[in-house]
Amino acid sequence: MTNALLEVEDLKVHFPVRKGLFQRAQTFVYAVDGVSFQLNKGETLGVVGESGCGKTTTGLAILNLVRATSGKIRFKGNDISEIAGLPVPDQMRIRKELQIIFQDPYSSLNPRMTLNKILHDPMKIHGLYPGSERQDRIEFILKKVGLTPEQGKKYPHEFSGGQRQRIGIARALSLDPQIIIGDEPVSALDVSIQAQIINLMVDLQEEFNLSYIIIAHDLAVVEHISNRIAVMYLGKIIETAPVAQIYHRPQHPYTRALLSAVPIADPRAGRHPIILKGDVPSPRHPPTGCGFHPRCPECSIDCDIKPPELRSLGKEHYVACHYA
């Protein structure tokens, strides 16, 4: 517990649904509902789950881009869950260490700023590097992400999707952070480009000693890059384990269903996907007990009464199921 770089403890993000004349919050969307995990130095945590399960919101809440309803986020032991309330210098110090790469490489870059300016401004705001060295630093980063210094004068629309994602990575690197959260960093790209970007991220991780939280719905991508995986369902982590454990011995019925849906590049491999019935319940009215019980093939009488706790199965393998 002690050497964790980032600890998230019982994080909850509930969005009020405002209705009526006085805009009173009448119901809540339980986007993230009690998520706990930790991230070690140099580690990559993959967060997977269906659309709407709260993966992205978790990432944004860690960066304080969405306000957490409750819960603790600790970076190197310091509570950062309410950094908007901290003095500006402290805020800036924390902002510098945690960065994000977005899914959509088109809306994530300001169309009116040149690449140089995109990379220069953050350094200026944080007062990093003397003014004369910043240009060298920009060129250094550009080379690291596979762009050329000459491209610095161009605007985002002059680049392709893959190049734009490289710019997004360069921007995250510009402040020399310790943690980068990748919110589906490759899912908007062509498959051939996906591999390039993933490999780039792995290389940069080694070189800059980065820790990643990679949010994705593509299990193949996550398997390649992650050390540990957390599976989310309806705002909760339902299983977390080292990558080999998850892929070879999934314990939660949902994880098993998810993995059985991954295509195998061998037509003769007997594949028996577990087809889940129904849809993901609305996070506005989550089911009682275990959130997965209405769709669970192994559901029993307890499941709709008692919410399962995340419990250890040994070797860093945790699962939230009564029957695992």
Partner: peptide, 8 residues
């Protein structure tokens, strides 16, 4: 969002 994360 990115600008906020970068500390603008």
């Amino acid at each position: 969002m990115a600008a906020r994360a970068l500390g603008y």
